[in-house]
Simulated scan of single mutants.
Amino acid sequence: MNIHKNARLTPLRREEMALCVIEGGLSKAQAARSYGVSPKIVARWVERYTSEGRAGMTDRSSRPHRLHCPVPQTTIARVIALRRLRWTGNHIAMEVGVSPATVSRVLKRAGLSRLRDIDPAEPVRRYERKRPGEMIHIDIKKLGKFNRSGHRITGDRRRQSSQRGNGTAPGWEFVHVAIDDHSRLSFTQIHPDEKAVSAVAHLKAALAWYRLLGVTVERVMTDNGPCYQSRAFRDACRQLGLTHIRTKPYTPQTNGKAERFIQTAIREWAYARAYKTSDQRAAHLPIWNHMYNWHRPHGSLNSKPPISRLGLTEDNLLRHHI
């Protein structure tokens, strides 16, 4: 119960005041003067205590027991039906012939106040493969190249980065990422494009890197990007003995581990420092990626680094920790 900061009576004081009148022999006027309230207030709590006892000392809802002019059920049904057609509250009120406040109350009771409540998001379905290498997720992040610190550092959007001062745009570079579904061990490379040749080169390099850690990759999951739908990538998967799984169109959450890793990389690597050039940023990527795999606590791994999922012995850890 929320009691006003200047309230003179709490449930305990109300009971005390009522007992003073009932058992103590005080008049209602005397009790009113003692407790700093009106005789009418004293009479109310005495009556409640007499009929309900201690339970009657709490506040009651001001909502009426019965509405004299309730909104008809047919109107309520029509308001909800129009809302499911994504009509606004004012539009519904004009169409149905009721006030916007009435529409708001109806929609609130129906749980349709916000447009996103009409089509709620699908529940998150989390999954994890049983062993390292059973499946890796692959994705690409596009980053702009630069030759001086940008507006994120300087705060000045008037000057754009140019290449050697000749006024031409520096272009783009593409971070190809691979992350193991079970261990979250990640492998990253920067390529000049997101074409099939670069995607295949990254796939082969990733498999070789996982192999050095004793992990044999069986499946690879990608989105439906052109490079992953190409014949070159399909043939590479066949030659490497991989099962290629593509996500459902327009559902990036299916490849959520790669998407989440990219968010972490952008926050903790790409935009974490004031790099002078994109080359300096690219040179720092292997350092950060090593920290991510070997030292950074991972929330879904009970705050342990991804390398802990491989179960390596101390000798193997020293041999691989370069």
Rank of each mutant, 00 (worst) to 15 (best):
N2F: 12
I3E: 08
H4K: 14
N6I: 10
N6S: 13
A7M: 08
A18L: 02
E23L: 14
G25M: 04
G25E: 01
G25L: 04
S27H: 10
S27I: 00
K28A: 12
A29C: 12
A32N: 01
A32G: 03
I41V: 12
I41F: 08
A43D: 02
R44K: 15
W45T: 04
W45Y: 13
E47L: 13
T50V: 09
S51Q: 14
E52M: 05
R54G: 01
T58L: 12
T58W: 08
R60E: 06
R66P: 05
C69Q: 14
V71D: 07
V71H: 07
P72E: 07
Q73M: 12
T74L: 12
T75S: 09
I76Y: 00
A81M: 06
L82F: 05
R83H: 00
R84K: 15
R84M: 09
L85V: 14
L85G: 14
G89K: 11
N90G: 13
N90C: 14
V96P: 00
A101S: 15
T102C: 00
G111N: 04
L112D: 05
R114Q: 11
L115A: 13
R116F: 12
I118R: 00
P120I: 01
A121C: 11
E122F: 10
P123G: 01
V124S: 11
R126Q: 12
E128N: 14
E128V: 11
E134S: 07
M135C: 03
D139N: 04
D139M: 01
K141Y: 00
G144R: 10
G144S: 13
K145L: 14
R148N: 12
I153Q: 08
I153N: 09
G155E: 09
G155A: 08
R158S: 14
Q160K: 15
S161L: 09
S162F: 03
R164G: 13
N166P: 06
P170F: 07
H176Y: 05
H176E: 07
H176S: 01
I179D: 05
D181H: 11
L185W: 03
S186H: 08
T188C: 13
I190W: 02
H191S: 11
A196W: 02
V200R: 00
V200S: 09
A201Y: 04
K204Q: 15
A206G: 02
A206F: 00
Y210I: 03
V217E: 01
V217Q: 01
T222V: 02
Q229Y: 09
R231P: 08
C237L: 06
C237I: 06
C237S: 04
R238P: 08
L240N: 01
T243R: 15
I245N: 04
T247E: 10
P249I: 07
P249S: 08
P252A: 06
G256K: 05
K257I: 05
A258N: 02
Q263F: 06
A265G: 10
I266W: 11
A272H: 13
R273D: 09
A274P: 06
A274G: 06
K276F: 11
T277E: 01
H284L: 07
L285M: 07
L285Q: 03
P286Y: 02
H290Q: 14
M291K: 15
N293K: 03
H295C: 08
H295R: 12
N302H: 10
P306T: 01
I307C: 07
I307Y: 03
I307Q: 01
R309V: 06
R309K: 10
D315A: 15
N316W: 15
H320I: 11
H321W: 15
I322Q: 15
